[in-house]
């Protein structure tokens, strides 16, 4: 088992390599929302579908290596909340044009003020939601 801070850091380095590498090599932004949208409804679909296939292949390889501990906690959210959360994530990332990868990793690495604003807002909204659910009895 890696040190609790070392594994997140190493994982982050891999994510940074993938994002920066995709931009430097292919000129494309590794924003999962935009990639998923293009893979589903275009306009271009080829490399986006390949990226999604890579994400899924990584999931299969990781599950084979480490098992269900990787998704610890996923069973604790009830089905209605899962559906509501998924809907909000899909709507919000399309309306705001980016998520943790597009605005977070790529936007911050491009020194975009627009992305910095988006990251500050979604981090604050997420932390507030967790506070309301866990400490104020909402839901």
């Amino acid at each position: 088992m890696l040190d609790p801070f070392l594994a997140p850091l190493a994982g982050g380095v891999l994510i940074g390599l993938a994002s920066g590498g995709l931009y430097l090599l292919a000129g494309e932004i590794a924003g999962i929302t935009g990639i998923a949208r293009s893979a589903l409804i275009g306009p271009a679909r080829g490399w986006q579908a390949a990226f999604i296939a890579g994400l899924l292949a990584a999931g299969l390889a990781a599950a084979w290596a480490k098992g269900p501990a990787l998704v610890a906690g996923i069973e604790q959210t009830s089905l209605p909340v899962m559906v509501l959360a998924g809907l909000l994530v899909g709507l919000g990332t399309d309306i705001g044009n980016g998520c943790t990868s597009g605005h977070g990793v790529c936007g911050l690495s491009r020194l975009s003020r627009r992305s910095l604003a988006a990251v500050a807002v979604f981090m604050a909204a997420a932390a507030t939601t967790v506070y309301l659910v866990r400490h104020a009895g909402v839901l």
């Binding site: 998923a36 899962m82 959360a85 994530v89 997420a126 507030t128 939601t129 967790v130």
Partner: peptide
């Protein structure tokens, strides 16, 4: 941008899953 980020943040806070991990978790 702001309203989209608020909606996304609420969804992320409810389930602890954002789009990238959602697809990896799916596998």
């Amino acid at each position: 941008l702001i309203s989209g980020a608020v909606l996304f943040g609420i969804g992320w806070g409810l389930a602890g899953i954002c789009p990238g991990p959602a697809l990896v978790d799916l596998a």
